[in-house]
């Protein structure tokens, strides 16, 4: 039995509930906190001023001391392991079943940021700090905060899910009018995703410092020539 009065009451209740949802406090983005374990899939789109467009889709696994990224199409990946004060980064080449391992000091020498927070959240805290929060709220049942602004010649527009501490969208618009966009496609609680990282435990891992002594190794020769595999975009530089 659906009386007009009852329908009106139900509509009001729904309105109140939705209204309450919109008004729930949005958790702050606390990048200094340890982010929760998560598995996610992202898509990176790079559009040049000339109209060129490249797409890459990549997966991301994050636990407390281990981060792994993988580009299934390029058959490449990156593994970061944190061991006390030491960070190990292994660039994985799945087609070759090989990897190149970098230690913290190697990363410093290569001027490659070893910031664990940036690696694990795909967000550079310094960049977020330099942007202005434009809005926050709830979307699809998840809390988010949106940050925009310009740093140098680059315009940024970043939306972050504050519960999982993952970006849902990063847009980077350069002075050269190139636009790079990273979008979160799907995310899962750790252990509940349909994918696992490609097993690499038995790969031949080469210390980065040893690259120079493998001048006749066909794999190393390809790496030296910059043909080692696709480039994984995805974090806010």
């Amino acid at each position: 039995m659906h009386s007009p009065m009852r329908n009106a009451a139900m509509s009001l209740l729904l309105l109140v509930l939705v209204g309450c949802g919109d008004q729930r406090p949005v958790p702050p983005l606390e990048l200094a906190q340890s982010p929760p374990p998560v598995v996610a899939e992202f898509r990176t789109t790079v559009e040049s001023a000339q109209g060129g467009k490249t797409l890459s889709q990549w997966r991301f696994w994050r636990s407390h001391d281990r981060i792994e990224r993988e580009n299934p199409a390029a058959q490449t990946g990156d593994l970061w392991v944190r061991d006390d004060r030491t960070l190990f980064h292994t660039r994985l080449y799945h087609a070759d079943r090989r990897g190149i391992e970098y230690r913290s000091e190697d990363l410093q020498i290569l001027n490659a940021s070893p910031d664990w927070t940036a690696l694990s959240t795909l967000l550079d805290p310094r960049l977020i700090g330099a942007l202005r929060e434009r809005e926050h709220g709830w979307r699809d049942g998840y809390p988010y905060r949106r940050y925009t602004g310009e740093v140098g010649d680059v315009a940024w527009d970043i939306t972050v899910r504050t519960d999982s501490m993952l970006p849902t969208r990063i847009e980077r618009r350069g002075a050269d009018r190139q636009v790079e966009t990273v979008e979160l496609l799907r995310s899962f609680e750790f252990g509940e995703s349909p994918w696992q990282p490609t097993a690499s435990a038995d790969y031949a891992i080469l210390d980065y410092a040893d690259l120079g002594d493998h001048e006749r190794d066909p794999f190393v020769m390809r790496v030296q020539a910059g043909e080692g595999g696709g480039h994984l975009h995805g974090h806010a530089h």
């Binding site: 690259l211 120079g212 001048e215 790496v223 080692g228």
Partner: peptide, 9 residues
């Protein structure tokens, strides 16, 4: 001369 991985002997 650029080499993506390492300088040489």
């Amino acid at each position: 001369i650029p080499t993506a991985g390492a300088e040489t002997h």
